[in-house]
Design a protein around this nucleic acid. Structure first.
Lengths: 99, 99
DNA sequence: TCTAAATATCGGTATATTTAGATATGTGAA
DNA sequence: TTCACATATCTAAATATACCGATATTTAGA
């Protein structure tokens, strides 16, 4: 966990928002069609709709967040669901306490 | 205090380090010539020496950090001393707890 | 008031980031 | 196996950031 790398991800309003939305998906996204829970997070399309940015941009953002280990992807058929990686977030918050 | 703005400052290794060095100046910098304490922080020249970057770059970084209210400048004669703004840092850490 | 030291600002180049459209890849269903 | 849909990746343009050297500003002292 490199705090500077994590900070780069958080240094963008959209990515920052995505992380917050994923904290309480049921408050920010409609229910999925094929599954009735958010245990694996939210599909890319819903995140894209909420941001208003292009599909490729959101997919790129989610890849960056995955590289920084801030989110975890899970495939369900045609869809990829992204959820938060609470372990990394915990480490980051912990590290920043000493800043 | 805008957490995305703060994150942009922290998204650079040098700026991140400067903030940490300023937490314990006596451990990271030599004593100043004209004053015998670090109550107002550290002069620009010492910070520049420690980073190895150019004078203009460091001055610009410190301005950015000041704009984000992460540091507070104080003039002492020819020198400008920079110290941390603990209030902003506290607010940022607090906000991140809810991330 | 002239000079020199410390810092700030300006202008420029190289690199990185943001963002989109086009295209590729993976997957379920017909 | 082919089609349509969801997502990922590639390419590229616009903008932002990382730096530097040169110059401007501020200030103490001669």
């Amino acid at each position: 966990m490199d705090p500077v790398e994590i900070s780069k991800v958080l240094a963008n309003e959209t990515r920052f928002n995505i992380l917050q939305w994923l904290k309480n998906p049921e408050e920010h996204f409609p229910p999925h069609q094929d599954i009735d829970h958010f245990d694996d997070g939210v599909c890319v399309g819903y995140i894209q709709d909420k941001t208003g940015l292009s599909q490729s941009t959101i997919s790129t953002y989610l890849s960056q967040m995955q590289n920084a280990r801030l989110v975890i992807p899970t495939r369900h058929g045609k869809w990829t669901y992204y959820r938060r990686n609470e372990e990394t977030l915990k480490q980051y918050k912990e590290a920043l306490q000493y800043l």
